[in-house]
């Protein structure tokens, strides 16, 4: 059974057809990678699913409902968690407050004016931080965290609404290779435990081939391939697209941001 199914999704910016008739689905418990060279339309596609962009045409069905055109906050409410390419946390809060804020929102308590936020969902927030290995940093200001830790914190935030689907935009961007593998291993372990489906985009082919259950490939706005690591690696069109743009399937050195 699929958690998310995208059908004939299209988006144009002026004359540019950024996403052109794209269809795919994410199955229950699946770890699905969306890859493609720069300008392939990954981000546009991703941003339509998370609600930041409104598609021109097509359907995005999540949990049996068309979510195309809904704002991000509504999609969150339906049970979709999300991480950003550049970790986005609330800089003026501690790590635990970041998670608490998400838990409060999930519990529908945003418009409460009396009992302090710090006293709400504390145990649950600590448990989440513990799961991402951040319990000791709970009281640290989130802006002081190392980049890798911010990513972990963001992951904890994304788990706060007990999502059925997690959207991760380049989860390892800007991280050193070792950190990168650790983070993805952690993500994978937790989502498997919780039977969460994941759709992620990724530049690092290492990560993709090592962890993804299935891979879909976009180029020039269209979906060109769909399969497991082996079949994608051997797919001539994929190879052409990547070699054509001068990108190889070797892990390229990532500069730290």
């Amino acid at each position: 059974m699929s958690v998310l199914s995208v059908a004939s999704l299209s988006k144009s910016f002026g004359a540019l057809r950024a996403v052109n008739d794209v269809s795919f689905s994410v199955r229950e418990g699946e770890f699905l990678a969306l890859i493609g060279p720069n300008g392939a339309g990954k981000s546009t596609c991703f941003n339509m699913i998370n609600g930041q962009l409104r598609p021109n045409a097509g359907e995005i069905r999540f949990a049996g409902r068309n979510i195309a055109g809904l704002p991000p906050r509504a999609i969150f409410r339906l049970g979709v968690g999300r991480t950003f390419q550049i970790a986005a946390t609330f800089g003026s809060m501690t790590a635990i407050e970041n998670v608490q804020t998400a838990l409060i929102s999930h519990a529908g308590e945003t418009y409460r004016f009396w009992r302090p936020a710090a006293a709400r969902h504390r145990e649950r927030a600590l448990a989440l931080l513990n799961q991402v290995g951040m319990r000791d940093a709970a009281l640290r200001s989130s802006r002081e965290l190392a980049y890798g830790d911010s990513k972990r914190l963001e992951f904890a935030i994304a788990l706060a609404n007990e999502p059925r689907l997690l959207l991760m935009d380049e989860p390892t961007a800007g991280m050193a290779p070792r950190e990168r593998n650790e983070l993805i291993a952690l993500v994978k372990r937790l989502v498997v435990e919780r039977k969460i489906s994941v759709l992620f985009t990724e530049h690092s082919m290492d990560v993709v081939f090592a962890f993804a259950d299935r891979i879909i490939v976009m180029a020039r706005g269209r979906l060109i391939a769909d399969g497991d690591a082996k079949s994608i690696r051997e797919n001539p069109r994929v190879q052409e697209v990547y070699f054509g743009t001068g990108k190889a399937f070797e892990p390229k050195p990532q500069s730290a941001r």
Binding site: R73, R77, A88, T110, I157
Partner: peptide
């Protein structure tokens, strides 16, 4: 602090 993140948590 982060309108995007805030919207993404509902």
């Amino acid at each position: 602090d982060s309108p995007l993140r805030a919207e993404a948590i509902g």
